[in-house]
Simulated scan of single mutants.
Amino acid sequence: MSLTTGERSVEAEDLAVGLPPGVERRPDPALLAHGVPGLAPRFAGLAAAPDGSLFLSSNGEGTVLRLAPNP
């Protein structure tokens, strides 16, 4: 979305984020077990880099996609 004009456009769609077909998600691990820190909860996020790239993570399965602008 352009911050100056408000114009919207789709730059990427149908991205391969999430678990592959046929793979089932494991149960969420405990954050603390017997007083010892466990694994962080799953997350999804979007971040912008100074060069205009976007970093997309989804479903907490570990993949981070970098979407770079065309030169």
Rank of each mutant, 00 (worst) to 15 (best):
R26A: 07
P27T: 03
V64M: 10
N59S: 14
E13G: 09
E61N: 01
E7A: 15
E11L: 15
S58L: 06
G35E: 08
D51A: 13
V23W: 03
L65P: 02
M1Y: 09
E13S: 15
G18A: 01
A30N: 10
V10M: 06
S9C: 04
T5E: 11
G60I: 03
G52I: 12
R42L: 03
R42S: 01
L19C: 01
A16K: 07
R8G: 05
A40T: 05
L65C: 11
L56V: 14
T63G: 00
L54S: 04
A33Y: 08
P69L: 14
D51C: 12
A40V: 07
T63M: 02
V64P: 02
A16P: 04
V36E: 13
R42A: 09
G45S: 15
T4M: 11
L19Y: 00
L31E: 12
P37R: 11
G18M: 02
F43S: 12
G60S: 05
F43L: 08
T4E: 14
F55R: 14
A12S: 09
E13Y: 06
F55Y: 15
E61A: 02
T63W: 03
A33F: 13
P71F: 03
V64N: 06
G22Q: 06
N59R: 02
H34V: 09
V10N: 08
A16M: 05
P50N: 09
L56I: 09
G52Y: 07
V36L: 14
L31S: 08
L46P: 01
L46E: 06
G60F: 00
N59Y: 10
D14I: 01
P37W: 10
V23T: 14
G6K: 06
D28C: 04
P71R: 09
G60A: 04
L19W: 00
L56N: 02
P41E: 10
S58P: 01
L31C: 04
R25L: 09
E7D: 15
R66D: 03
L31A: 12
E61F: 01
S9V: 03
N70G: 15
S53L: 06
P37E: 06
L32W: 14
R25S: 10
F55Q: 08
P50E: 13
L19H: 01
G38V: 06
V17Y: 02
H34G: 11
P20A: 11
V10R: 12
G45Y: 07
P41D: 12
T63L: 07
E13P: 02
T4W: 10
T63A: 05
L46V: 15
A68T: 15
A47I: 05
L31N: 05
V10K: 11
D51L: 13
R8E: 14
E13C: 05
D51I: 12
E11N: 11
A49L: 15
N59V: 03
P50F: 13
L15D: 05
P20D: 04
D51S: 13
S58N: 08
R8I: 12
M1G: 12
S57I: 01
P71D: 02
A48H: 09
